[in-house]
Amino acid sequence: MDSVQSAKVLKELGHPERLRVFQVLSDVGLEGITVGELRDRLEIKGSTLSNYLSNLVAVDLVIQTREGKSIRCVANYDTFDAVFCYIRSNCGKMPATY
């Protein structure tokens, strides 16, 4: 993970609704959830969700696989963890207390 990729991931998570999509995917775990189920949980339009997912897939925060007519989405914890490892390693020493 480098600074450019980290910034892109953080930008996508900085949008409240895309963060909410990632939170739901994180909550369901490694089994993931179909786009239809995700749309129903979030109660948003399919086209809006498609846009959010496209952005999250582009920065490798979400992995999608086709299952027949459905698309299953899974949070990519490796990318999420890599961003925060990068920040901890490259953004100076964090004070023990604030």
Results as ranks from 00 to 15, higher is better:
V62F: 07
C91G: 07
P16S: 01
Y52S: 11
A82Y: 03
R18D: 10
S50C: 07
T79E: 10
A75Q: 15
S89N: 10
R18G: 02
T97L: 12
L13K: 01
P16V: 00
M94D: 04
D78Q: 13
V83T: 14
F84Q: 07
R39Y: 01
I44Y: 05
R72V: 14
R66I: 12
A58D: 09
A58I: 15
S89G: 02
R20G: 07
E12L: 09
C73I: 15
P95N: 06
R39S: 08
S54N: 10
G14M: 04
G29M: 07
V59A: 10
F84V: 10
P95K: 08
L25V: 04
R41S: 09
K11T: 14
A96M: 15
K45G: 14
S47C: 05
E31N: 15
L38H: 02
A7H: 06
A75W: 04
D27W: 03
V57Y: 02
V9L: 08
V62P: 10
N55L: 00
I44V: 14
I33M: 15
I71Q: 01
M1S: 08
F84L: 06
Q64L: 11
C85K: 12
L25S: 12
S47P: 04
F22E: 06
R66S: 11
K8V: 11
M1H: 06
A7N: 13
T34L: 00
D2P: 11
R18K: 12
L13G: 02
R72Q: 09
K69S: 12
K45F: 12
D78A: 13
L42V: 10
P16G: 00
A75I: 06
V4G: 06
L42G: 02
L30H: 13
V21T: 08
V35L: 05
F22D: 12
D2E: 06
C91P: 01
L56G: 07
D2C: 03
M1Y: 01
T48V: 12
L10Q: 12
S6L: 01
T48K: 00
V74P: 05
L10C: 11
I33D: 03
Q23C: 01
L13H: 06
I63F: 13
E43A: 13
